[in-house]
């Protein structure tokens, strides 16, 4: 039976030998808990929590900034659209103006040309009448001269 002694608390030994080791180990463990609480759990836990809050605040700030940027971008886009619309309207107005001015000018020019042509026609007509008249006078004087010449050999009466 002597080999079984290691199982029993006989002869000051054995597997199930409970003695003062137990309370001292418990005490030692509680001291370890206290020491690790001071050197490990508290500082590192604080670091983890700090990092959590840091990340959370940073994230919310970044989100806020992103929202602001998106709002600004939308505003600028709207403004750009407005400006584009305005510029299109201005271009259209300018084109219409130009069109109007061009047609007006063309009309004026045509009218002037008409007027000038009429004046020229009138002057021409006048000159023609004058020429005709002078021509008629000349015809009369010429015919008289011719008549005189013809009638020169003939005694009058």
């Amino acid at each position: 039976m002597m080999y079984w002694t290691f199982l029993l608390a006989e002869e000051g030994g054995g597997l199930f030998d409970l003695d003062a080791t137990l309370p001292l180990m418990a005490l030692q463990f509680m001291v370890l808990v206290a020491v690790l609480n001071a050197t490990f759990y508290k500082p590192l836990g604080k670091a983890l929590d700090d990092r959590d809050t840091y990340i959370r605040t940073n994230q919310s700030e970044a989100k806020e900034r992103l929202m602001k940027a998106e709002a600004l971008a939308a505003q600028y886009e709207q403004e750009a659209a407005n400006v584009r619309r305005q510029s299109l309207a201005i271009i259209a107005a300018a084109e219409a103006d130009a069109q109007k001015i061009a047609s007006q000018k063309i009309a004026e020019a045509q009218q002037e040309a008409q007027v000038q042509r009429e004046q020229a026609q009138k002057a021409l007509d006048l000159e023609k009448q004058e020429a005709m008249r002078s021509l008629e006078q000349q015809v009369e004087s010429l015919s008289r001269q011719i008549l005189d010449k013809l009638l020169a050999g003939v005694p009058i009466g």
Binding site: D17, A20, T21, M25, Q28, T39
Partner: peptide, 28 residues
């Protein structure tokens, strides 16, 4: 009566844990 071998190894374990903790939190 105390079991010396248990205390020796447990002191080693405790020392290791404390040293590692101190090293880990020395410069956070």
């Amino acid at each position: 009566k105390l079991h010396g071998q248990v205390f020796l190894t447990s002191w080693f374990v405790i020392g290791l844990l404390v040293v590692v903790s101190v090293l880990a939190t020395r410069n956070i």
